[in-house]
């Protein structure tokens, strides 16, 4: 059948070449060749908004990551859950392995952006942005990240997410690295109950970028003692962090009502964040404390009601 191929009437003022590497080596080779003129692209949702907002100039070369095999999908082993970096947020927010062993991440992925964005955006892109809302959730699940980076050959690196965030904060992050996957630890819940929650506050009720996010995970034994407490806060364009003093307040102790006010105050003191035209640093700190206290109170009381 004869096909009529039309030419675009409005030529793109900044055309770019889109590369389809078959594997990591090819992707790295293209990046090495074009350097800062080339960008890796997964779902591309953040990249497009950055181009549109003039935050970064349009790249002359795009290196697709979706053409590389094995970067998508979720697998379970005895001790870990492995999530391919190109797994879409929608899939992460619907996956039963993640729901069972990464409940906070599961919740986070269900609250990032709108359904249409989650159909396209990937978990890897959310993390690689360094400010994605999945990051606080990954902090409480002791996640590690698997990267490929440019060396004399392709170097494969496994890195605890806390260490990676330290590198980001210090400004020493490699912009040439490709996130390949995320590994979550499975945790034994024998004789204990796991409490998890993820809370997000934005500038309005509907889908909006976050101002503050809080993630919580802990085990509670039958006598009400907390253990393995992990608490993290982030949101907006701030770098997420663990709230160590809040964790220490609960660790090994039994729940009592005064903990709620104490943890709210501690969180607002410990959370390192920033001011912008939409929200002051103080507002974000106080909000983090309130989200944490409210989440803890709700979780404990729903546990009591279930007994």
């Amino acid at each position: 059948m004869e096909m009529n191929i039309e030419t675009s009437r409005i030529p793109d003022p900044f055309p770019c070449q889109v590369w389809e590497p078959a594997d990591m080596e090819e992707a790295m080779m293209i990046k090495r060749q074009y350097g800062a003129n080339a960008a890796f692209v997964a779902g591309g949702t953040l990249l497009r908004t950055q181009w549109e907002g003039g935050i970064v100039s349009k790249h002359e070369h795009l290196i697709r990551l979706d053409t590389i095999a094995d970067l998508r999908g979720i697998d379970e082993s005895d001790q870990h859950i492995h999530i391919g970096a190109l797994t879409r947020l929608r899939e992460c927010g619907a996956d039963m392995y993640i729901a069972n062993h990464g409940a906070t991440l599961y919740e986070a992925c269900r609250h990032i952006a709108a359904p249409s964005i989650r159909n396209q955006a990937t978990i890897g892109g959310n993390i690689a942005s360094a400010v994605g809302d999945a990051i606080p959730a990954l902090l409480v699940h002791n996640a590690s990240l698997h990267w490929a980076d440019i060396g004399s050959k392709v170097d494969l690196i496994q890195q605890d997410i806390v260490d990676w965030l330290d590198v980001v904060k210090s400004g020493r992050r490699s912009l040439d690295a490709i996130l390949m996957g995320i590994v979550l630890e499975k945790q034994s819940t024998e004789h204990q109950q796991e409490i998890t929650f993820f809370r997000k506050i934005g500038r309005r009720e509907a889908f909006t970028p976050s101002l503050v996010t809080v993630a919580f995970r802990a085990m509670v034994d039958p006598l009400g003692h907390f253990s393995q407490v992990r608490i993290a806060a982030g949101g907006g364009s701030g770098i997420a962090m663990r709230l160590s003093r809040c964790e220490q307040l609960l660790e090994g102790n039994r729940y009592h009502a005064e903990m709620i006010t104490s943890i709210a105050l501690l969180a607002s003191e410990d959370f390192v964040t920033y001011s912008d035209p939409f929200a002051s640093e103080q507002y974000r700190q106080q909000t983090a404390g309130n989200l944490l206290a409210a989440g803890l109170w709700e979780s404990i009381h729903s546990q009591i009601e279930r007994r």
């Binding site: 096909m3 009529n4 191929i5 030419t7 770019c16 070449q17 889109v18 389809e20 080779m29 697709r64």
Partner: peptide, 24 residues
Amino acid sequence: MKTTNTTWQATVNREHRELQIDPS
């Protein structure tokens, strides 16, 4: 190494369409 073809084709509202366009 392969680059994405500038001939774009898709089915739009049941109709097959082909265009010469920038893949981005």
